[in-house]
């Protein structure tokens, strides 16, 4: 009924690679992207990360591009605003609108390009993590990072029941649709309110059933049954190190380059 990022993550081709390594790679790339002062390094990261996600992790290209459309629309909108707002240097483009003089100057244009590049570099790296590392493996990594046990246990159960409630919400929603619960704004609002209250009650009930289910299997405060996080293969570590070194080098070397 619903296809979440996690569903792709579970069947991606890089599933067997160490989650720690993937997290490290993704996080480093995000940091590089958002801290870079020129668009070159973020663009490099955006392109290579996309290639890795689509070619190596075998995430279908169609889905990946659709995912990227969301941040793309945001980035383009805000870049447009930024381009017109910042002004110094040569005017590249100007127009008269209702007596207002709107102009894009060099600085504004540079900033807009940087904004788009950073957003893209960051998003591609974030999607790399989201599409190659299922939540369950992130839990395992969290555990090795000594995050408090109860926090991890809670998040694991929340994670599990997100799907149960998504199914329930989808079912209630279609039950409402079948009886024309979406006919008109008033009806839609009413249906939505009902959906929320029913979901709340159901989650309450589910909580009680959860306790019974745990108790009937001798719950004793233990849920630490994590498979140990897998170690990374030397070759993978080497490849990631080389890639990150190259990306960092590009970021450092192109520090002073001004495009326009």
């Amino acid at each position: 009924m619903h296809n979440l990022l996690d569903d792709y993550a579970i069947s991606n081709a890089l599933r067997e690679t160490s989650a720690r390594l993937k997290l490290f790679l993704g996080l480093w790339a995000i940091l590089l992207s958002v801290s870079s002062t020129t668009p070159i390094a973020p663009l490099f990261l955006a392109i290579t990360m996309s290639l890795i996600t689509v070619m190596l992790a075998k995430i279908p290209g169609r889905i990946y591009s659709r995912l990227l459309l969301v941040p793309l629309s945001f980035a383009l909108l805000s870049a447009g605003v930024v381009a017109f707002m910042h002004g110094s240097g040569q005017t590249l483009f100007s127009l008269q609108l209702f007596g207002l003089n709107l102009a894009i100057r060099e600085e504004g244009a540079n900033l807009a390009v940087l904004l788009i590049a950073r957003t893209f570099g960051g998003m591609c790296s974030l999607y790399f993590i989201a599409l190659t590392t299922p939540m369950i493996e992130i839990f395992a990594v969290l555990k090795t990072l000594h995050i408090p046990q109860s926090v991890i246990e809670l998040s694991m159960m929340i994670y599990r029941y997100i799907f149960v409630f998504l199914d329930q919400a989808a079912m209630i929603h279609s039950a409402q649709m079948m009886r024309l619960g979406d006919a008109g704004t008033k009806n839609s609002l009413n249906s939505f309110a009902m959906l929320c209250s029913v979901l709340f009650l159901r989650s309450w009930e589910q909580g009680e059933r959860l306790i019974v289910a745990m108790d009937s299997r001798c719950y004793d405060g233990k849920l630490d049954l994590m498979e140990p996080a897998k170690g990374a293969k030397p070759l993978a570590i080497l490849a990631v190190a080389a890639y990150l070194a190259a990306a960092t080098a590009i970021a450092v070397l192109t520090r002073g380059v001004i495009l326009l």
């Binding site: 939540m135 369950i136 299997r217 849920l223 630490d224 049954l225």
Partner: peptide, 26 residues
């Protein structure tokens, strides 16, 4: 041991292994 009618009530761990291992761990 009791197996509930609705499996979603019973399977609360995020992976199959974790769920099966829940009893023995406890």
């Amino acid at each position: 041991g009791m197996v509930f009618q609705n499996s979603d009530d019973q399977l609360f761990a995020p992976t199959v292994y974790q769920d099966v291992a829940f009893g023995p761990t406890n």
